[in-house]
Amino acid sequence: MLVLLPPSEGKAGDGAGAPLDPGSLSLPALTGARDAVLTELVELCTGDEVKAREVLGLTERQRSEVARNAALRSAPARPAGELYTGVLYDALGLASLDAAARRRARASLLVFSGLWGAVRITDRIPAYRCSGGVRLPGIGALAAHWREPLAAALPAEAGSGPVLDLRSSAYAAMWRPTDELAARTVTVRVLQSRIVDGVERRSVVSHFNKATKGRLLRDLLTAGALPRAPRRLAEALRDLGYLVETPGPGRLDVVVSEL
Rank of each mutant, 00 (worst) to 15 (best):
T178G: 11
E180D: 14
E180R: 13
A182M: 03
A182V: 02
A183G: 08
R184C: 12
V186M: 02
T187G: 09
T187R: 11
V188M: 01
V188K: 00
V188I: 11
V188H: 00
V190R: 00
V190I: 13
L191P: 05
Q192W: 02
S193G: 06
S193E: 10
S193P: 02
R194P: 01
R194H: 06
G198E: 01
V199S: 10
E200H: 13
E200I: 14
R201Q: 15
R201A: 12
R201D: 13
R201I: 12
R202T: 07
S203I: 04
V204F: 09
V205R: 05
V205A: 03
S206D: 09
F208Q: 13
F208L: 09
N209L: 04
A211H: 14
A211F: 06
T212D: 01
T212Q: 05
T212W: 02
K213Y: 12
G214A: 03
L216G: 04
L216E: 01
L217P: 14
R218W: 01
D219C: 01
L220F: 10
L220K: 09
L221W: 03
L221S: 04
T222I: 11
A223F: 07
A223R: 03
G224D: 06
A225T: 09
A225K: 05
A225V: 10
A225D: 10
P227D: 08
R228G: 15
R228V: 15
R228A: 15
A229C: 12
A229G: 12
A229M: 11
P230A: 06
R231P: 12
R232A: 15
L233C: 04
A234L: 09
E235D: 10
E235P: 02
A236F: 06
A236C: 03
A236S: 11
L237K: 03
L237D: 13
L237C: 08
R238G: 14
R238E: 14
L240A: 07
L240H: 12
G241S: 12
G241I: 14
Y242C: 02
Y242L: 06
Y242K: 06
T246H: 09
P247L: 10
P247V: 11
G248N: 08
G248Q: 13
P249G: 00
R251K: 10
L252T: 01
D253V: 05
D253E: 14
V254G: 04
V254W: 02
V255L: 08
V255R: 08
S257H: 06
S257Q: 09
